[in-house]
């Protein structure tokens, strides 16, 4: 009915979605390996703007509708995008903290199947198995769980694990996706579920004693939040104006 009212209302809805993603990114600023959510805004459907005329145009006849152009019907958030860019690396000097420099993912065995993560907070469980911070087994290049030797271990850039005597005992697998944007889906506890097999090569290097931090950036998040809030406020004002105009129409027109 009132195109403008719907259009501005759609802007308010989009504002809420963006605020939701921003709040989640901010809450996870200190979650190692966290990949932030990006929400882009898309134009929505457009509708032709028409108004009736009864002009006679030569060679055309009566032109009932005059079409000056198109009118946008509002905005919407485009589907959620995961930002897979590299986060900062923080040195922790913990033996079983690992950071990936590159595009690879650690492979984890969870009760629901294999999941992928950039979170390298690992530890040893009571059976010497290498597990992540939530107890999921970290998989090696052959897809098996990794049993650590007793004592200290050294892990090189290729993910090869060496015992104290310097012998290789296993190699951490790095999964690489051709198109992570379309093949990976957020699955909770910092993991991603894949819809395709990781077929890529060269996942980058592994750095022992370090963690990759979240790739969200405080300045950017705060700026975005101000923009979202102002846009929301503007949309709200426009809704009120539209309402005023309709009100005036209803109340004043019959006095003419």
């Amino acid at each position: 009915m009132i195109k403008g009212l719907y259009a501005t209302a759609s802007a308010m809805v989009a504002g809420m979605k963006r605020q939701n993603a921003l709040a989640h990114n901010i809450a996870n600023l200190e979650t190692p390996g966290f990949r932030q959510i990006l929400l882009a805004m898309d134009d929505w459907y457009v509708t032709p703007v028409t108004h009736a005329t009864n002009e006679i145009q030569p060679g055309v006849g009566v032109n009932h509708y005059y079409k000056p152009g198109y009118l946008g019907l509002g905005t919407q958030t485009s589907p959620e995008i995961i930002d897979f860019s590299q986060g900062d690396v923080k040195v922790t000097n913990e033996e079983l903290d690992f950071a990936i420099n590159g595009s690879g993912f650690f492979r984890l065995q969870t009760p629901d199947g294999v999941r992928y993560s950039r979170d390298g907070r690992f530890r040893r469980d009571a059976n010497n198995t290498l597990v992540n911070v939530d107890g999921f087994k970290v998989l090696d290049v052959n897809g098996n769980a990794i049993t650590l030797p007793q004592g200290h271990v050294r892990v090189n850039e290729q993910g090869r694990i060496f015992n104290q005597a310097g012998n290789q005992v296993a190699q951490i697998n790095l999964a690489v996706f051709e198109d992570p944007q379309n093949q990976l889906e957020r699955d909770g506890l910092n993991t991603f579920k894949a819809s395709a097999e990781p077929t890529g090569t060269d996942g980058g290097s592994i750095q022992q004693g370090s963690l990759e931090m979240a790739n969200a950036n405080v300045q950017q998040l705060m700026t975005q939040m101000v923009i979202v809030n102002r846009a929301y406020e503007a949309a709200q004002k426009v809704v009120q104006m539209q309402d005023d105009i309709v009100g005036k129409l209803i109340n004043n027109l019959n006095r003419l």
Binding site: N28, E30, T31, P32, V133, D134, L189, N190
Partner: peptide, 9 residues
Amino acid sequence: GNFQELLEN
């Protein structure tokens, strides 16, 4: 303390 991302199950 280890922070972790939380999603609804």
